[in-house]
Design a binder for these strands. Structure first.
Lengths: 166, 166
DNA sequence: TTGGAAAGTCAACAAGGCTGACGTAACTTC
DNA sequence: GAAGTTACGTCAGCCTTGTTGACTTTCCAA
C-alpha cells in the first residue's frame, strides 16, 4: 500500500488518516514501552513515578532535586513523595551539597542500583528486540522523528543528558 | 558507527548506553505528543482519558463498550466514568444494540466531532511538523520500530484498526 | 427453564498528578 | 550585618484516572 513506505516528496501527500495511524502507533507502542517495568514494580510499593526517578538518578548521579524536577516536569511536592519513600527504603541516598549545603545530591545505593538494573534490563531487552526486528536504518529514523516531536525545552533537556552521559 | 551497514547484525553493537538514549527519547517525545491535546482539554472538565475515548470512537463509529475496553486496556469501570460524562455532556451517543440489547454502540455527536477535530488537528499538526523535519525515510523507520515495540496483542489491535479505517 | 456468561452500572479506594501556604537553612547582595 | 533569594521539605486538600467488588440486565446454551 502507498502508506507503508512514504518515500521522497510523497510526505506532503500523507493523508490525515495516515498521520492518525502514526498517532495510534505511538499510543500502542508506549504501552509496550512501559509494560515490563510496570510488571516488575507491581507488588512492590512502587510505580512508574519511582521508575522515572530511579532512571534519571542513575543517568546523572549526584543530580540535585531541582534538576530532577526540571527533567521530570512534575511539582516538587509530587517528586518529594516519591523520593522520600526511595530514601526511606534505602534505594536512594540524598547527600547534602558540599559547595552549597542547600542542595541535595542524589545517588542510587547498591540496592537502588539492583532495582534500576532489573528495570532497565527489561526495558532495554524489549527495545533491542524492536530494533533488531526493524533494522538499523529504521532505528535511525525512529530517533529522528522522536526528537522532532519533542518540545524545544524538552529537546534541550534531552541533549543535556546526552552530554552528561557516562 | 553502528548505522553504517544497513544489515541487521550491526545492531548487535549498540551499547546499553545507546539503547538508553532511545528510551529517553521515547519518554520526552511522548510528552510532546500529549501536550497539545492536554492544553486544549485543561479547563474543560476533561482529561487525557476522554481524549482517548473520543479518538477511538471517531476511529470506529458504532463500536461497543467492551470493544473500546480492549483497545484502551483499562477496566470497564474506569472507562464507564469517562463515557458517562461524555454522554451527559452530549459529545457521545450510546445506542442500545438492536441485535444484542446488552451492547451499547458508541457514536460521536456533532458536538463531539467538533472537539475531536480540535484535538486531532493539534496533534496531527505536531506530528506532521516532526515528519517534515525528519523526512520520509525516517518516518518509515519510526513506524517500523513503534510497531515492533508493541505487545503482540496490542499489535493485533493496532492492525485491526488499520482495516476498519475510513 | 435455568444457570452461566457477557455487558454495563454503582460505590469505594489508591496512585500520582496539582495548587497554596509555610518553614528553615544557606547563599547573595547591598 | 540585614534583607532578600534560593533550595528543599512538608502539611493540607483537591482532581483525574486507575483499581476491585458487588450488582442488574440480557443473552445463550445445556
Amino acid at each position: 500500500m502507498a502508506d507503508q513506505t512514504p518515500s521522497g516528496e510523497s510526505l506532503l501527500f500523507l493523508t490525515d488518516e495516515q498521520v492518525r495511524k502514526g498517532i495510534e502507533a505511538m499510543f500502542f507502542a508506549y504501552r509496550g514501552f512501559t509494560v515490563d517495568p510496570d510488571r516488575i514494580l507491581e507488588g512492590m510499593d512502587y510505580g512508574r513515578a519511582h521508575h522515572r526517578a530511579i532512571h534519571f538518578i542513575r543517568r546523572s548521579p549526584g543530580t540535585t532535586v531541582s534538576n530532577l524536577l526540571a527533567i521530570l516536569g512534575v511539582t516538587k511536592q509530587s517528586l518529594n513523595r516519591v523520593l522520600r519513600t526511595l530514601v526511606e527504603d534505602g534505594l536512594v541516598e540524598a547527600r547534602v551539597g558540599r559547595r552549597d549545603k542547600r542542595e541535595r545530591h542524589l545517588y542510587l545505593t547498591p540496592k537502588g542500583q539492583d532495582l534500576e538494573r532489573e528495570l532497565s534490563d527489561a526495558q532495554r531487552a524489549r527495545m533491542r528486540a524492536a530494533y533488531r526486528a526493524a533494522g538499523p536504518q529504521a532505528v535511525a529514523g525512529f530517533r529522528q522523528v522522536l526528537e522532532a516531536m519533542m518540545d524545544p525545552e524538552l529537546r534541550r533537556q534531552y541533549h543535556g543528558l546526552k552530554e552528561s552521559g557516562a
